[in-house]
Design a binder for these strands. Structure first.
Lengths: 252, 252
DNA sequence: CGCTCTGTTGACTTACGTCAATTTTTGTGG
DNA sequence: CCACAAAAATTGACGTAAGTCAACAGAGCG
């Protein structure tokens, strides 16, 4: 069996959820949280490499990643894989307006993952009943499109080292928002093969540019962690303008 | 002055609009069309190369392309341009949930264009007042994300000729849906430079792969038109699976 | 302890980029 | 409608970033 249901007594609770502020539900008032939790049908636990759902299949559920890291990807007819999105805790996935449309992508766990599960009908009900949720939903979708634009511009116009640098930067900053930086490093379970499929180069070449970044003491990724030694230089290489007007470096 | 307001007596009318079936408003009941038209603040006419709005600026308006072809793009710090979306009649653009967020992209006309203009507040009102519009809005956003996924997978994993073939195919099929095919050709005002910036290769190389497709009698693009002589072969080269279960070739 | 997965490194190939000269097409004004 | 300039496309010679192939070295795991 692919994914495991988390037993009822071990389910995490929405009211104390530390990643709710990144989730679809971030603006739901505290007194509605138990109602929200009632909408959730459960949680799935996945081990690395296990699949949540697959391209071409229907899915009756949508998800919020609760913990771990997961990959959204497609397999092309020639068998090549393109990674489309890197999922971090709080990320919402699997939503489609048309319930009977097959998924256009697959999802696998990159590390040990827990997903919160919501039947699609519940999501539709939630959207209908809570107008703010509708706006939040659109906000998330708009962000998705903007992220896609970043990704397209990176793959379309940048060199291999720039793309890898941008990927490292993006993941690092996103994890940092979640407060999970330790000694300027973050958990990073992707293999170089995964990175290669994300940025559209060969694994061998990823190895080369990664060792370049290591040699220059800018960033390193080893033993499941990503070390960023010089954020500004990493951004310069990626040719990304960091906004640090607030004292904290931000993406745009 | 960049864009020209269409004078009131020459405005096109929503009730007879031939591209409404592709637009955000496609499911609005006929008796609400004058109300819809009241939400529209006017129309802009743009000549080729003129800009509708620019990355980094705020925009108080959203748009539906009524006629012509336009390009959504970004300029990267090094001055390179990545085209992110090709706009056809009926396409909705410029929407963001947060009214004070600057645009993440720019839009220019590729041919003579007319855009329907809606103040953002009106769109928000429309969404609030017409629940079906909300769902339709999400549907459009989901489609946008799927299109982005197609685009990413193409430039991430395919060769230059495959990417160009996919672009030709996509544009051809989308225009064909709109019923604007003549002698197996469609209006196509993009230059090879535009194509290059869309698929992430050099204009010189676009010329080479285009002449390859011409030599093989598969497709040709000249004098502002795109000729598709062999749709199936074009799809094969692009490595796109066409669905012709309905007798008509469709993208997925 | 051996097996598999992941990453590294070197030699060689190739798809695509760059530069530059030339032709063709498009647009504009007389 | 033609003349002209500007823009777009083509072609060839040559350069280079990244791909391919292959051997090898650690790391993780039963």
């Amino acid at each position: 069996m692919n994914k495991m249901e988390v037993p009822a007594e071990k389910l995490s609770s929405c009211s104390t959820c530390s990643v709710r502020r990144f989730a679809l539900y971030k603006d739901i008032p505290l007194d509605s949280l138990s109602w929200l939790q009632g909408m959730r049908s459960g949680q799935y636990r996945l081990s690395p490499k296990q699949s949540l759902y697959t391209e071409g299949n229907l899915s009756r559920e949508v998800f919020t990643l609760f913990s771990g890291m997961a990959l959204v990807f497609r397999i092309l007819p020639e068998g090549k894989r393109q990674i489309l999105r890197i999922l971090l805790p709080g990320d919402f996935l699997g939503f489609q307006v048309d319930l009977d449309q097959p998924m256009d992508h697959s999802v696998i766990a990159a590390s040990e993952c827990v997903f919160c599960v919501f039947p699609k009908e519940n999501i539709r009900r939630m959207i209908r009943e809570i107008p703010e949720l509708t706006m939040r939903m659109m906000e998330l979708q708009s962000e998705s499109v903007i992220d896609c634009h970043d990704w397209i511009a990176s793959i379309g116009q940048k060199t291999a080292i720039q793309r890898v640098a941008q990927l490292f930067l993006m993941v690092y900053l996103r994890i940092r928002e979640r407060g999970a930086v330790q000694d300027s490093s973050v958990i990073f379970p992707l293999t170089q093969h995964d990175i290669a499929d994300a940025v559209g180069v060969t694994p061998v070449h990823v190895s080369r540019v990664a060792s370049e970044l290591r040699k220059e003491q800018i960033a390193d990724c080893k033993q499941g962690r990503l070390y960023v030694y010089n954020l500004q230089q990493l951004a310069d290489i990626a040719s990304v303008k960091l906004d640090n007007t607030t004292g904290v470096y931000r993406w745009r």
